[in-house]
Every structure is written in structure tokens, then in C-alpha cells.
């Protein structure tokens, strides 16, 4: 399994996609922006880019020739997706910390880059994973429709979350108002987001394995 992950990281994923989180993370320096977009760039750019490469390089056939189980093939790929997602989130979080230092006097209209917000970002990626991964493994090479549906789902989540964040005084207070100062609460929201991320990604992995076992390698 480790070999499969290394195979993807060395051959499949273009080095550009390791640099991209840094560049995109810097978008966190835009004051008062809709910061969900920074993470959504992962879905918009990295996913089609990376999965397009896998398809173009006939990765499915290559991987199938290696002495590995189909289950491990899926596990490794899910892990690669998670690694890329973490890279994006962690870079964005780092720039988010700079953002807070720079613009402490601003009262943002949208969610500010506090810990609770990152919890929401984890949930957004969880929504993406739970749709994208099982849909992709119907064929294990077609990523178009899986990408469209999962990106739409992630954006819908972000849109609704942000709308509630503006419309509801309670939620607004939690993510942009006085709740921001409550570090314990913020960490709790982040932890909840991470738990949801892990749970939904595990579910996605299980469904994907079931589907991939039926895929014929042509």
C-alpha cells in the first residue's frame, strides 16, 4: 500500500500540485474574502488535474499489473487524495494565521479564518470525498461526472453554511463574533469537522472498494 502511495506521489501527481497549495494558500491574504473558495480551488484545479493525469498515463492498467490487491489500490488512492487535501488546508491555515494578525481590526462579512471555520472546511471536503470517491470508482478512470457532482455538492455546502453564517445571529456570533475568542469552542468545532471528515472519507472508501471489485480492467 505504501508503495502505491509513493507511486502516485512520484509518477502520478505532477510536482506543480504540491506547490499549488502554497500559492493558493496565499489567497488567504485577501482581506474579508469568502475563504471557502481557497479550499474549493483544490476541487476545481487539483482534482481534475491529478485525475486527468492518471487517466492519460493509463495508471489503472499499470497499477493492476503490480502485485497488489484491488482494496489496496483504492486505499492508496484515497490516502493520496487526503494527503493533497491536508496540504491545501494546512497551507491555508498558516496563511490564515497571518491574515488574523494583519487584519485584526476588520470585521469580516464572511467567515474569518478562525479554527471553527477550518472545521467547516473539513466538512466541505468530507462532502466532496463522499460523493467523488464512490462515483469515481464505478469505472476507476472517468472523473468528469464524479467531479461535477462532488464539486457542486461541496459548493452547495459552502454556500449554505456561509448563508446560515450571515443569516443566523447565533452562528454569526460563533464564527465571526464573540465566539471567535472562545478557543475551546473553536477547537471543538474544528475537532468535530475533522471527525466528520474521517468518517465520511472512510464510508467513501468502503463504497469505492465494493464498486472497484466489479470494475474490469480493459
Amino acid at each position: 500500500m505504501y508503495n502505491l502511495v509513493m507511486k502516485d506521489l512520484k509518477l502520478g501527481v505532477n510536482p506543480m500540485f504540491f506547490l499549488l497549495p502554497v500559492i493558493l494558500g496565499a489567497l488567504m491574504l485577501i482581506p474579508g474574502w469568502l475563504y471557502f473558495i481557497v479550499i474549493l480551488y483544490f476541487c476545481w484545479i487539483t482534482v481534475p488535474g491529478v485525475f486527468g493525469q492518471f487517466k492519460a498515463h493509463n495508471d489503472l492498467m499499470f497499477t493492476s499489473l503490480m502485485p497488489v490487491t484491488k482494496k489496496d489500490i483504492v486505499k492508496a488512492r484515497v490516502l493520496v487524495i487526503v494527503i493533497m487535501e491536508l496540504l491545501h488546508i494546512v497551507m491555508a491555515m498558516i496563511f490564515g494565521m497571518i491574515n488574523i494578525q494583519l487584519y485584526s481590526s476588520l470585521t469580516p462579512f464572511f467567515f474569518g479564518p478562525h479554527l471553527g471555520f477550518w472545521g467547516l472546511c473539513f466538512v466541505m471536503l468530507a462532502v466532496f470525498n463522499v460523493v467523488f470517491i464512490p462515483m469515481y470508482y464505478k469505472t476507476a478512470y472517468k472523473f468528469g461526472s464524479a467531479g461535477i457532482v462532488s464539486i457542486a455538492a461541496a459548493m452547495l455546502f459552502a454556500g449554505v453554511a456561509q448563508w446560515i453564517g450571515i443569516a443566523s445571529p447565533v452562528v454569526s456570533d460563533l464564527f465571526t463574533g464573540s465566539g471567535v475568542q472562545n478557543t475551546g469552542l473553536q477547537i471543538l468545532i474544528l475537532a468535530a469537522g475533522i471527525v466528520i471528515f474521517i468518517a465520511l472519507t472512510m464510508i467513501a472508501y468502503r463504497i469505492a472498494v465494493k464498486r472497484f471489485l466489479k470494475v474490469e480492467i480493459l
Partner: peptide, 13 residues
């Protein structure tokens, strides 16, 4: 597969 890679890299994997 991965025809733009060098043999060395491919074998290494």
C-alpha cells in the same frame, strides 16, 4: 504508462 518518465524513475517505483 507514464511514458514521459525516465526508465530510472519508473524502475525505482
Amino acid at each position: 504508462f507514464y511514458t514521459r518518465s525516465k526508465l530510472k524513475v519508473m524502475t525505482g517505483v
